[in-house]
Structures are given as C-alpha cells and as structure tokens.
C-alpha cells in the first residue's frame, strides 16, 4: 500500500506529535507514505471568504497528486473533506472543470480526475482493515478506558463523504477497540469542537470544549482520542480555559489515535511523541 501524504498547514505549524506518531505507526504497518513533491494549503481556511480561491488551491494539490499517480491520504479531516469535495465537483461538473483548467493551464497544470482522497483513519478501516490492525497488536491496552472524538469533516457532509453515520460514528471506536482499549460512549459524541470559529470568537470553543470534556470525564474516560489536529488543539489547548470557566479541573489527556495504536504495537511513549502532549497521560501510561 502506497499513498501520497498531504500534510496541510496546521500540523507542521503546531501539531508535530500527530505527524511523528502517524508516520511511525503507518510505516510500521507497512503503509508506504510518499511526501507531496510540493503542495499548498488545501483551501479550507479561506473557503469562508472565497469559494473560488478554495477551488484553485485544492485543484492545484489534486493536479500535483495526479502527476505522482498516487491517491492522497491526509491526517487532517478538514483537508480530506476539502480536497475530496473539490475532486468530486471537478470530476462531475464539466463546465466548472473547464473553467478551472483554463486557470490551471497558466501554471502548467491540468485536472484530469485520476486520483482519490481519504483521511488516514478511513483508509485504515476501508483499505487496510481493522482485523489486520488487531494482528499487529503485541501489547493490548486492556486497562485503557478512553472516549473518542471523531470530529465533523471525516463524515460530513454525509452525502458528499459517504463514509459513516456522522450522528453515530463507529469507525474510530472500532479502531480504538482494535488496540484492546475500552471506548466508552457518552452523550452527544458528535458535538463539534468549535475549532473553525475559534478565530472569530474564542468563547464558542471554550464553551464546547468544557461541555464535552465534562461528559467524557463523567462517564469515567481517562483520555479523549482524536484524529484531527484542530480538534486536538481545541480539547488540549483550550482545556485550561474551559476549566477556569467551569470552575473545576478536567485534566483529560487528549491523545492522537496513532499514539494509542503505536503503544499497542509495542512502541515507546517517546517514539510516539507522547511526551510532547501538554496534558501528560502519566496515569494512563502506568497501566501499560
């Protein structure tokens, strides 16, 4: 299995622990990751102000991937959704494709519609297989009791992504359970972290983060597992502010799924950059 890795902007900017652990774990599973020879922002951050700019940014990335002849996987669901959306729009709408191709020709590119885009967690479930992941677990995390936060864009909009029921997400749960850990259910698991609106009004994610983490803590989960750099930044980075607002301590470690899987595959916490997390999962790691 071989994919082109689309890194996006926020991961190399400030979520290195996610990239470090994902590269280690996917490599160990025998999934070959080829870096994009060149790339740019997927377009998600500025779609709000310019649909056309999003189209052009995403289209350029798709063309570069087509030249490599490889499907894209991303670590960020926002990138996956944006690139997939553009890919579908351009594949299905000939008039739009012609307009965009006219502009792309100015920089020597052409969209042909030859590749697909997926988030890595979806790739693990659909292409690699949960059973094969279980085969690679050498240290089942039987004493780990966690909760999941799938986030919005891996499965929304439902009609576009055609993955799982976003109101009742199960893919990440299956991936977590494959490590031997227990994944607890809690109320309103599909609630958004508020990340995309944090630049407009920080109070929104602070409220949402406190709200969700209180429920996660309430059911007795010892950590929250994420597969999105933005969700991770919200639940980890905003947690102290949410605690202040709530007037109580939460102290819920927020762990990237590849870190959890890597532990179950026998890797050390240091290799998986668990020491780079702001809320140290010390108690959890003692259970290994």
């Amino acid at each position: 299995m071989k994919y082109l890795l689309f890194l996006g902007c926020v991961i190399p900017y400030r979520v290195q622990s996610y990239e470090i652990s994902a590269r280690k774990v996917l490599g160990e599973l025998g999934i070959e990751l080829v870096d994009m020879p060149t790339y740019n922002c997927c377009g998600f951050p500025i779609e709000a102000i310019s649909y056309e700019a999003r189209l052009m940014l995403a289209a350029r990335n798709l063309c570069i991937a087509e030249e490599q002849g490889l499907d894209i996987i991303t670590l960020c669901p926002g990138c996956a959704e944006t690139l997939h959306h553009t890919n579908v729009e351009l594949k299905e709408d000939e008039e739009l494709r012609n307009t965009v191709n006219e502009r792309l020709s100015e920089v020597g590119l052409e969209f042909k519609g030859k590749i697909n885009v997926k988030h890595f967690a979806r790739m693990l479930v659909e292409d690699f297989g949960v059973e094969k992941i279980k085969d690679r677990v050498v240290r089942p995390l039987e004493k780990f009791v966690v909760a999941q936060h799938t986030g919005c864009h891996i499965a929304r909009p439902k009609k576009l992504m055609q993955f799982e029921d976003p109101e009742n997400p199960t893919a990440l749960k299956k991936l977590i359970e494959a490590t031997g850990a227990t994944c607890l259910s809690y109320e309103d698991e599909a609630q958004c972290c508020g990340g995309p609106v944090s630049g407009i009004d920080r109070e929104i994610p602070i409220q949402l983060v406190g709200d969700k983490l209180k429920r996660v803590k309430g059911v007795g989960a010892q950590a929250l597992i994420t597969i999105c750099p933005y969700c991770h930044l919200m639940y980890e980075g905003m947690q102290p502010l949410a605690e202040r607002k709530l007037g109580e301590k939460l102290r819920i470690p927020v762990i990237h799924y590849p870190q959890l899987l890597g532990l179950a595959m026998g890797m050390s916490p240091e290799e998986l950059a668990l020491n780079m997390l702001k809320i140290k999962p010390t108690q959890l790691l003692e259970k290994i």
């Binding site: 290195q16 990239e19 994009m36 020879p37 060149t38 790339y39 189209l55 940014l57 920089v107």
Partner: peptide, 20 residues
C-alpha cells in the same frame, strides 16, 4: 526524525489566487 517539509512553491499559488 521527520523528513523535510515539502517545498511550498508560493509563486504559482499566488498566480492561481490572482486569477480569481
């Protein structure tokens, strides 16, 4: 232990954005 960040070629990106 991470590979270098892929080259980001800002010039064609800017030109594409200017086209819209």
């Amino acid at each position: 232990g991470l590979p270098p960040l892929p080259r980001v070629d800002a010039e064609p990106v800017r030109r594409l954005l200017e086209s819209v």
